[in-house]
């Protein structure tokens, strides 16, 4: 404490006032900087910044689209390499006119949701089990870590042998893909609960099941929802693999057919549909988080 006091600049200056005059540099230390808001200019500037922000947000993508289209018109990029935006739009219209997308979305979304429901529930239960009981961790962690590294795309023939060629096999692929993200995040969430909170619960004579119900699960919920968000994305991606197994329609099916026939324009439409679904999933999950986690601050960094 006394050491700190001796080194404090204020004390030094006070104890040696005579020397301060010999150090003209010191004058800089006290030079004033004006931080007060200047009436009018700030808000005008703010307005400008706002408009510039909006213009950039809309303008930059438009410029990219324009450059993309031009490079195709000028023959700089071959259409097989990267089809121009007009061709992608035409492919989109083609898919709509033939009813492919309208047919694919309900079919694929149902597959995704069923797989997500089963895989998500399994991952949640396994994650809770492994998170709460060491035995559970010992039993399930290694197999689930292995599940994560399975290259599902290479396993399509094996999945056919095991699970057939009906709807069931497709659901199994999606289920298998969604278990792990749910498991991992639930497990991490449960393990991440501050042990001090669990200790506090112990001092209030809460039973094990009460502690799980009232302390661990609510505190781990944000992490579980992160797992759900991730699993939802994976359930859509897994369609590409699942719909290689005797599919007649679906998003993954469209992409696979386009791939077989070198239709890069349709593949890019598929990517855009995926992007739209990703954004939708994100919005739904955000709403769900707001509902399920009213206690969490809505942190937005801007």
């Amino acid at each position: 404490m006394t050491d700190i006091a001796a080194n404090a600049p204020g004390l030094q200056a006070r104890s040696a006032p005579a020397v301060s005059g010999d150090r003209p540099r010191d004058g800089g230390r006290f030079a004033l900087v004006d931080l007060s808001p200047i009436a009018g200019s700030a808000s005008r500037f703010g307005h400008l910044a706002q408009w510039r922000g909006r213009a950039l947000r809309v303008g930059v993508p438009l410029l990219i689209l324009l450059a993309w289209q031009l490079s195709s018109w000028l023959g700089l990029v071959a259409p097989e390499v990267l089809p121009p935006p007009t061709a992608i739009y035409a492919a989109f219209v083609e898919l709509i006119v033939h009813g492919d997308l309208q047919e694919a979305l309900p079919v694929s979304l149902t597959r995704s949701l069923v797989g997500l429901a089963i895989g998500g529930t399994a991952g949640l239960l396994l994650g809770l089990f492994a998170g709460l009981w060491r035995t559970g961790e010992e039993i399930f962690d290694a197999p689930l870590q292995m599940l994560r590294t399975i290259p599902f795309i290479a396993l399509v023939p094996l999945f056919i042998v095991w699970f057939g060629i009906d709807e069931f096999a497709k659901i199994v692929v999606i289920t298998a893909a969604t278990i792990f993200p749910m498991y991992l995040n639930t497990y991490a969430g449960v393990r991440g609960v501050d042990p001090k909170l669990i200790e506090a619960a112990r001092t209030f004579d809460l039973s094990r099941s009460q502690t799980i119900l009232h302390v661990i699960l609510p505190v781990a919920l944000p992490s579980v929802l992160v797992g759900l968000r991730y699993a939802a994305g994976v359930s859509l991606l897994a369609l590409v693999v699942a719909e290689q197994i005797n599919a007649h329609s679906g998003l993954g099916y469209i992409l696979n057919v386009a791939n077989m026939n070198q239709r890069s324009d349709i593949i890019i439409v598929g990517i855009l549909v995926y992007a739209a679904l990703g954004i939708t999933t994100d919005l739904v999950m955000r709403a769900l988080e707001r509902l399920a986690l009213p206690w969490r601050p809505n942190i937005a960094l801007d």
Partner: peptide
């Protein structure tokens, strides 16, 4: 049944699907 690739076809046959 649509199963792209010979490997998937053979799997389908062996599994009697």
């Amino acid at each position: 049944a649509t199963l792209p690739g010979p490997a998937a076809q053979l799997s389908g046959l062996y599994s009697k699907a």
